[in-house]
Write a protein that binds this DNA or RNA. Structure first.
Length: 589
DNA sequence: AACGCATGAAACC
DNA sequence: TGGTTTCCCTGCGT
C-alpha cells in the first residue's frame, strides 16, 4: 500500500506537454514531398540530390543515418531511414527488428570454435525453447518528485545502506537527495557543481553518506549527502570558470566515474580521453593516463565487481576498453608536459563499436558479462569477459537514439537478478498507448533480447534516459527531464485501481483520455524553479530566512551553497556573483 | 499556440 | 585538419 501525497492541483498540466500525436512513422515525408518545390530546394542542398540518391540506398548495417531523396519532377520525395534500425526500405512501424519478438537480437555467428559451445549454441537457437523464462511484474509509478531539478537529470545512484535514498545530478550542477519512501523528503544542493553533474557514485557502505561526483565544470568532488559539505579532489581548470568558454578546447570536463570501494580508489575520465585515479583516503591523484583517443570523452568507467583490478571504460572514440589497474599505478602524470601519452600498455581488450559508446558495464554479480550501450541503436552483450576481444555475443536492436537534447541512454543491469540477465534501458521512440504517445522504459533479457516488461505511466510523457534498478529492493528509479520517478511492481492483491488520470487534469479542459494506460497518483509536486525564483525575490527584498518550510508537513530543503565556500582556494572567476545566503529556505509553493 | 533556445555527434566541405 | 551544416518522435520557457 503505497503512501502517497496529493499532487498539487495546478501541477497537473506541468508534466504533460501534449505528446505530439503525430505518430506517423512514415518514411515518406508527405509534407515535404507535397510542399512547393522551391521550399524543398531551399531545405535540401540542391547539389547533393544526386549523391544522396546513390549513396542512400547503400545504408550500411552499421547504422548510418542516411536519407534518400527521390526527385519527382518538380518535387522530391524524401525517404528517411527507419528510426529504429537505421536501415532503409521499411518504416519504423514495420521494422523487422521491431516486430521480432526478441528485438532483432542477433546471436554472434562465431560464438566460439569450441565444439561443445557450438553444440550448445545450436541447441539454444534451434532446439527446444528456452527453458528459463524470466518473470517480470508489471510496474507502476509509486512515487514521483516533479521538477526536483532545475534542468534535466543526468545521473542517479542509490544509497549503499539506506534503501529508500537516491541521489541525482542535473545539467546545471545541482545534486539532489530524495527519499522515495517518504516521497516528499528531499534535499537539493543547488550549487554543488557549476555545470553538468555527469555522474554520481556513492563511496560504499563504510562511508555511506558520501558521494563522489564528476562534472563538466572539471571538478571531482566528494560530498556528504546529509550536510552537503564537500571537498574538491580534482579541479581540471584551476583558472576558474569563465562563462561562455566552457566548451572551448582548453576546458576539461569530467565524465565517467566509478568508485573502486575495495581499493579505495575513485576513477574518473575526462573530455580528452584521459583517466585519473584518486586515492579516496588521501584525496591525492595517483594516476593519470591517456587511455582513449585524444579529445574524446570517457563516457563511463566501471570497476569489475569481482576482480577489482579490472577496469572497463567507454568513450566517444567508439570503443570500450578493459584495463588491468595494476599496470597503471606507475605511470603518474606522464602526459603533463606535452601530449605524449603512453599507448596503454595495460590494455587488455578493446571492444570496437560503430559509434559512440554511452556506457559499458560488467555484470553486477559475477562480473563476467559485459553490457554496452552504443548510439547506433544497439545494445551489445558479451557473455564472457574473455571473449571481449571478439564481436559481441548479442546485439539487441533498441531505440535509444542519440539526441543532443537528451541525457545519453545507458542500459543498466539489475543487480538483483542472480542470473545476470535482466537490464533496464529507456526507450527513445514513442509508442501509441491508447492514443497517447509514451516513451516506455524497457526491461530486457540480455540473454535473449526479449522484452520482459515496459514501464509506462500516463503522467509520464517525457523520455526517460536515466534509469536504475535498485540493488536491494524492488524499485526502479527513473530520471526524466527535471523529475524523478520511483517504480514498484503492482502488488496483486492490491489489484487496484487503475487510478484515472488526475481529475484536475481532466477538469483542466484537456479532457484527454489516457486510454488504457493507468496512472498511479502517488505524486508529489515540487517546483524547484519556482522555489528559487521566490527565494531570489525574497533575498533581493532583503530577507533570506524562512528556512525548511514545506507543505503537508513534509521536509524539504533547498540548500544554496555559499559561493565563497565553493571558490575556496580558487582565484576569483570573472563572473563570480556575490555570495548568497548560506542556507536559504526551500519552500513549497 | 507559435516560436526560440540549449546543445552534440558526425558528415560534409 | 578545422569550420560549418545537419539531424529534425526534446523539453522548457516566453
Amino acid at each position: 500500500m503505497p503512501r502517497w501525497v496529493d499532487a498539487r492541483e495546478g501541477d497537473a498540466e506541468d508534466e504533460d506537454d501534449e505528446p505530439s500525436s503525430e505518430d506517423d512513422e512514415e518514411e515518406f515525408d508527405m509534407d515535404r514531398a507535397e510542399a512547393p518545390a522551391e521550399q524543398d530546394v531551399e531545405a535540401e542542398e540542391p547539389g547533393d540530390t544526386d549523391e544522396r540518391v546513390q549513396s542512400g540506398a547503400t545504408a550500411g548495417p552499421s547504422g548510418q543515418k542516411q536519407k534518400i531523396t527521390i526527385p519527382l519532377g518538380n518535387r522530391k520525395l524524401v525517404c528517411h531511414p527507419c528510426y529504429l534500425c537505421k536501415q532503409t526500405g521499411h518504416t519504423t512501424m514495420t521494422c523487422p527488428y521491431r516486430i521480432a519478438p526478441e528485438h532483432g537480437c542477433v546471436q554472434a555467428a562465431n560464438l566460439s570454435s569450441d565444439t561443445l559451445l557450438a553444440t550448445v549454441l545450436q541447441r539454444e537457437q534451434h532446439g527446444r525453447k528456452r527453458e528459463i523464462h524470466l518473470e517480470q511484474p508489471s510496474w507502476q509509478v509509486d512515487a514521483a518528485v516533479l521538477k526536483l531539478h532545475s534542468r534535466r537529470c543526468l545521473c542517479l545512484d542509490f544509497h549503499p545502506t539506506k534503501d529508500n535514498i537516491v541521489v541525482s545530478g542535473d545539467k546545471k550542477g545541482q545534486v539532489a537527495v530524495w527519499d522515495f519512501e517518504k516521497v516528499h523528503e528531499r534535499t537539493v544542493y543547488a550549487q554543488m557543481h557549476r555545470a553538468l553533474a555527469n555522474n554520481i557514485k556513492f563511496m560504499g557502505p563504510v562511508q555511506d553518506s558520501y558521494c563522489a561526483s564528476s562534472s563538466a565544470d572539471g571538478k571531482l568532488k566528494v560530498w556528504d549527502v546529509e550536510t552537503g559539505f564537500d571537498r574538491e579532489l580534482l579541479n581540471m581548470n584551476p583558472d576558474g570558470w569563465i562563462q561562455g568558454v566552457t566548451d572551448e578546447k582548453s576546458w576539461i570536463m569530467l565524465y565517467g566515474l566509478d568508485v573502486g570501494v575495495e581499493k579505495g580508489l575513485i576513477i574518473v575520465g575526462d573530455s580528452k580521453g584521459r583517466l585519473y585515479f584518486v586515492d579516496a583516503r588521501s584525496d591525492e591523484k595517483i594516476f593519470q593516463g591517456q587511455l582513449h583517443k585524444k579529445g574524446m570523452k570517457v563516457t563511463s568507467c566501471h570497476v569489475n565487481p569481482v576482480d577489482s583490478n579490472m577496469l572497463m571504460t567507454s568513450s566517444n572514440d567508439w570503443t570500450a576498453k578493459i584495463f588491468d589497474i595494476r599496470n597503471m599505478s606507475t605511470n603518474v602524470d606522464n602526459s603533463n608536459g606535452k601530449g605524449k601519452e603512453s599507448p596503454d600498455p595495460m590494455q587488455l581488450a578493446v571492444l570496437d563499436h560503430p559509434k559512440v559508446v554511452n556506457s559499458a558495464y560488467f555484470s553486477p554479480i559475477s562480473g563476467s558479462k559485459i553490457l554496452t550501450t552504443c548510439i547506433d541503436n544497439r545494445i551489445r552483450v558479451w557473455d564472457y569477459v574473455l571473449s571481449a576481444h571478439g564481436p559481441a555475443d548479442r546485439e539487441i536492436v533498441h531505440s535509444h537514439d542519440f539526441n543532443r537534447y537528451l541525457t545519453p541512454f545507458r542500459a543498466e543491469w539489475d543487480p538483483k537478478d542472480p542470473s545476470e540477465r535482466t537490464f533496464v534501458v529507456g526507450r527513445y521512440i514513442s509508442e501509441d498507448f491508447g492514443g497517447v504517445a509514451l516513451h516506455p522504459i524497457d526491461v530486457l533479457d540480455a540473454s535473449t533480447g526479449r522484452l520482459l516488461s515496459q514501464l509506462v505511466d500516463a503522467n509520464l510523457s517525457t523520455i526517460c534516459p536515466v534509469n536504475k534498478p535498485h540493488p536491494r529492493v524492488n524499485v526502479i528509479v527513473s530520471g526524466s527531464s527535471r523529475s524523478l520517478y520511483a517504480w514498484r511492481p503492482v502488488s496483486k492483491d492490491e489489484d487496484d485501481p487503475k487510478l484515472p488520470v488526475k481529475e484536475a487534469k481532466e477538469a483542466k479542459g484537456k479532457g484527454k483520455s489516457t486510454g488504457s494506460v493507468p496512472s498511479s497518483a502517488h505524486f508529489i509536486s515540487f517546483d524547484a524553479d519556482a522555489t528559487e525564483k521566490k527565494k531570489r525575490k525574497a533575498a533581493s527584498a532583503g530577507a533570506g530566512e524562512e528556512a525548511g518550510k514545506s507543505k503537508k508537513g513534509g521536509k524539504s530543503k533547498i540548500v544554496e551553497k555559499d559561493e565563497s565556500d565553493e571558490e575556496n582556494g580558487e582565484p576569483s572567476s570573472p563572473n563570480s556573483k556575490p555570495s548568497k545566503g548560506k542556507k536559504a529556505g526551500g519552500k513549497k509553493k
